[in-house]
Design a protein around this nucleic acid. Structure first.
Length: 887
RNA sequence: GGGCGGGUAGCUCAGUUGGGAGAGCAUCGGCCUUACAAGCCGAGGGUCACAGGUUCAAGCCCUGUUCCGCCUACCA
């Protein structure tokens, strides 16, 4: 069989084979009702038009690890998959496609356009899903959902109607963020602020009659055309003379009042503030209080309106230039200061957002936020790492109403109808026949659609069939954990909490695990425009999925971003290959099923590796239970490579080759089978493909490794117990071997040259231990002779290493120049001296000896003594060498 | 403006109640030892950003400084 196994692991065929196998055999399927404990995760639905990026890869890998792990633990696992309709993003994509063929969506009309988008989804919507599958995602694909599905749309309507009835959704005229390119309103969250070096323009507004008046300061001079007042602080003596007067608004000929409001900061700018209620949220508020008219001078298309007079039709930024030029000509532009300020951009197309007066729908967020806040404060839902809880609190405590209407076509159309007769609004789940106010049938549905995040907020329960009371909800809601990046903590997590508490009367998830962002090797956010993206699919093509998964897992430390480079992935690809080869080697010797064989005649390495296996299993479980993914990965890496491969396999080779007698051969084969078997299961959640492949070659396994049982006290059934004696004893044996190897390496002695070694120690236990395991030492240190004796005559012409109490002497006569050994010993002694000085300082400090806990003092004393003894032995040797040299 | 995170080996980062500074990669030396050169054996390398403080003891706790990153905000 081993001849069938290639020398290097080749992932591609293996991955395809097993993914198909898992899926067609229903191994990802959750049971709606079941006696097993339920474990559930809803996927953060990727945009239906999206392409897989590293963020997804990390996010999916971590969820898949948890799901596979919980299945191995015997849970009934539901991983609910699906996609998000991503209103603005998707509409933009399809529009761009139309534009390419010279069509405007308005030519097409709403219905045709939406049809086009559905077609688009039909064609490309499965792309992202297939990419998730390439990552090995073990989602229950039979249950895949889409936010525009019939069922989910029903949930959206029901939520909208109920919130409206409860007064938590309202329509009103307010300042909102407007993207002139997407031609839609945006929520506050959807605006990305960037610091810009801008200017603060000081403009003189003459008092009526042309005399000098107040000077206002603004960063957006074009908005002056929409000013309806100038405000000053009532306590500002500089402007007292203006109270109640009017000033002339330059370039317009309009007269506007000077009003007093203590909102104005006397210290900022000139202390006189222009008021533009239609284009600034603060001004809007001031205008409301003072009953000022609102004048909209910037249109929804970003061009100046008729209200802007001669500037009509100019782009807003062109208009800024024109206004400044005209003001300058009239001598009214007093001064220009440079001024840094934040400018809002659309998070979808990066156009500068315009605050605009507009009639929109809003969610009254306060009451919903309270419950969401309490759920985390009381610990009902735990956010991991905990530090994110603060951000969560802060945002919810200062939450503002949420603008949910979007002026696009792709999305859930708002279930509200305006009456052509009385103007009343009827909100209903089903298309109403009559106006709820005047009973007219002249009804037109609101053309706007809802914010995509409105429907994603319902995801944890809408995907499970809500508003019906389904078995799925009963079994799996609340979900066990939500795994996501911090960038959507507010967008999505907080809103799911609000909706979950309000409509399900319970949190949507017990835990929230917030993972890092994946960046490039320089720490920059990966983006297409910067061209620094590492494409997961390319990586998979090159290194295989398991390599990518293991890399991401090993770097998924809590609270820090992941800087990824190909070099790293290559390193973990080597690990996969190492595992593959260890298995290949094992299968040269394991030809039968040892599953039910009791252990007997265990050698020291056997006992040791079983102890390590058990410890690692426990650590692995603990790490995954607390979302310390990197710890889990590193623990396994260390164990597999540096304990199992580097030591255990080397130790048992002679036994496997039959050089140690039948009993030890059988014993080691049984243990090898068990360790390989359990290690594969431990690794499977992180690297599912290679483990499944090896699993099927391992004699005695049945079915998929997905159906195996995670190693625990139960499965180890008392056969494998912690064995601290074995660990201690092995540490000594390994130290002796390393001591000899060290001398060999430092002295440049060829590895093929077998050495003669003498170990002297007064400790009888150590002598017995070394005698009992002498074959191991001889094999791994490559010795010709190995003598163990009580301390006696010091040998001549040897290099020395000290392990615990034992003096290891390697005969060098005829091999090496003794001067080299002198240098080596001096170096070694110098190192020990540093340690002794450090420990001396502690022990001569009365504060330490008196105040430190006894065990700590004891430990230091012991350590000190050990170093001193070691030094004495090395020094004695050094002396002999020096005298030898002198001869 | 407010808040948060970070600064540990050449690089990327671990370091969970304060008690012997770690890993991977890179570097250097030696090896085709019949699972693996995507490998094996060994070695070197750190004033834990800086300055104070608490403590017998600080990478870890406190204060300040500095640099970097991010989030958030209606001072025009």
């Amino acid at each position: 069989m081993e001849s069938m196994l290639s020398k290097g692991y080749e992932p591609h065929e293996v991955e395809k084979k097993w993914y198909t196998h898992w899926e067609t055999n229903g191994l990802f399927a959750a049971a709606e009702k079941d006696d097993r404990p339920a474990y559930s995760i809803v996927i953060p639905p990727p945009n239906v038009t999206g392409v897989l990026h590293m963020g997804h890869a990390l996010n999916i890998t971590l969820q898949d690890i948890l799901c596979r792990y919980r299945r191995l633990c015997g849970d009934n696992v539901l991983w609910m998959p699906g996609t998000d309709h991503a209103g603005i993003a998707t509409q933009n994509v399809v529009e761009r496609d139309l534009t390419a063929s010279g069509i405007d969506r308005h030519q097409l009309g709403r219905e045709k356009f939406i049809e086009k988008v559905w077609q688009w989804r039909q064609t490309y919507g499965s792309a992202i899903i297939n990419q998730l599958k390439k990552l090995g995602a073990s989602c229950d694909w039979q249950r895949e959902r889409f936010t525009m599905d019939e069922g989910l749309s029903r949930a959206v309507k029901k939520v909208f109607v109920q919130l409206h009835q409860e007064g938590l959704i309202y329509k009103g005229n307010y300042i909102i963020n407007w993207c002139p390119r997407c031609m839609t309103a945006l929520a506050d969250l959807e605006v990305e602020h960037e610091d810009h070096e801008g200017h603060l323009y000081h403009i003189m507004y003459p008092v009526a009659g042309g005399e000098k008046g107040p000077i206002v300061a603004t960063t957006r001079p074009e908005t002056m055309l929409g000013d309806t007042a100038v405000a000053v602080n009532p306590e500002d003596s500089r402007y007292a003379y203006l109270a109640g007067k009017e000033v002339e608004l330059p370039l317009t000929g309009r007269k506007i009042p000077v009003i007093s409001d203590k909102y104005v900061d006397m210290a900022f700018g000139t202390g006189a503030l222009k008021i533009t209620p239609a284009h600034d949220p603060n001004d809007f508020e001031v205008g409301r209080i003072h009953n000022l008219p609102s004048l909209k001078v910037i249109g929804d298309d970003g061009k100046m309106t008729a209200e802007a007079g001669k500037y009509e039709g100019l782009d807003r930024f062109e208009c800024r230039k024109a206004v400044l030029k005209d003001l300058e000509e009239q001598g009214l532009l007093v001064k220009i200061d440079s001024h840094d300020h934040a400018v809002g951009h659309c998070y979808r197309c990066h156009t500068v957002v315009e605050p605009n007066l507009s009639k929109q729908w809003f969610v009254k967020a306060g009451p919903l936020a309270e419950k969401a806040l309490a759920a985390v404060k009381t610990g009902r839902t735990k956010i991991v790492p905990e530090k994110w809880e603060n951000d969560y609190y802060k945002w919810l405590e200062n939450i503002r109403d949420w603008c949910i209407s979007r002026q696009i076509w792709w999305g859930h159309q708002i279930p509200a109808w305006t009456c052509g007769q009385c103007g009343g609004i009827t909100v209903a789940e089903q298309t109403p026949e009559h106006c709820s106010s005047c009973h007219s049938t002249d009804l037109v549905q609101d053309p706007d659609v809802l914010d995509t995040w409105f429907s994603s907020a319902l995801w944890p329960f809408s995907t499970m069939g809500w508003p019906d009371e389904t078995a799925l909800l009963k079994t799996f809601y609340p979900t066990s954990v939500l795994v996501t990046g911090f960038d959507i903590l507010f967008f999505w997590v907080a809103r799911m909490m609000m909706m979950g508490m309000h409509f399900m009367d319970d949190v949507p998830f017990d835990d929230v695990y917030i993972h890092a962002l994946v960046r490039d090797e320089k720490g920059k956010k990966m983006s297409k425009s910067t061209g620094n993206v590492i494409d997961p699919l390319t990586i998979i093509e090159k290194f295989g999925t398991d390599s990518l998964r293991f890399t991401l897992t090993a770097f998924a430390a809590q609270g820090r971003d992941i800087k990824l480079s190909e070099k790293r992935i290559e390193g973990y690809r080597n690990f996969i290959n190492k595992l593959w080869n260890a298995a290949r080697f094992s299968f040269m010797h394991i030809k039968q099923n040892y599953a039910s064989d009791a252990f007997s005649d265990l050698s020291l390495p056997d006992r040791w590796i079983l102890d390590r296996l058990k410890t690692v299993s426990q650590n692995m479980a603990e790490a995954l239970d607390t979302y310390r993914f990197n710890d889990a990965a590193n623990e396994l890496y260390q164990f597999v490579w540096h304990e199992f491969c580097d030591w255990y396999l080397e130790f048992i080779k002679p036994a496997l080759y039959g050089n140690k007698g039948d009993a030890e051969e059988q014993s080691s084969k049984k243990v090898l089978w068990r360790v390989l078997h359990d290690t594969l299961i431990l690794l499977h959640p992180i690297i599912p493909f290679v483990t499944e492949e090896i699993w099927h070659i391992l004699p005695g396994t049945e079915g998929s490794i997905m159906q195996a049982t995670f190693p625990s006290d139960k499965t180890m059934s008392g056969q494998i117990s912690l064995d601290p004696d074995a660990v201690r004893e092995m540490d000594l044996i390994m130290a002796v071997i390393t001591g000899v190897r060290n001398i060999r390496g430092e002295m440049n002695i060829s590895p093929s040259k077998a050495l003669d070694v003498l170990v002297q120690t007064a400790d009888e236990n150590t002598r017995n231990l070394l005698e009992q395991n002498r074959e191991f030492v001889i094999d791994l240190a490559r010795l010709d002779s190995f003598v163990v004796e009580p301390v006696g005559e010091k040998p001549k012409g040897t290099a020395t290493a000290i392990v615990e109490q034992a003096i290891i002497s390697v005969y060098l006569e005829g091999i090496i120049d003794f001067g080299q050994e002198v240098a080596r010993l001096e170096k070694e002694i110098a190192k020990i001296d540093v340690e002794i000085v450090k420990l001396d300082k502690k022990l001569t400090n009365p504060g330490f000896v008196n105040k430190a806990p006894e065990d700590v003092v004891g430990k230091v004393k012991l350590q000190h003594q050990e170093y001193v003894e070691k030094k004495e032995k090395l020094t004695a040797n050094l002396d002999r060498f020096q005298s030898l040299q002198a001869e």
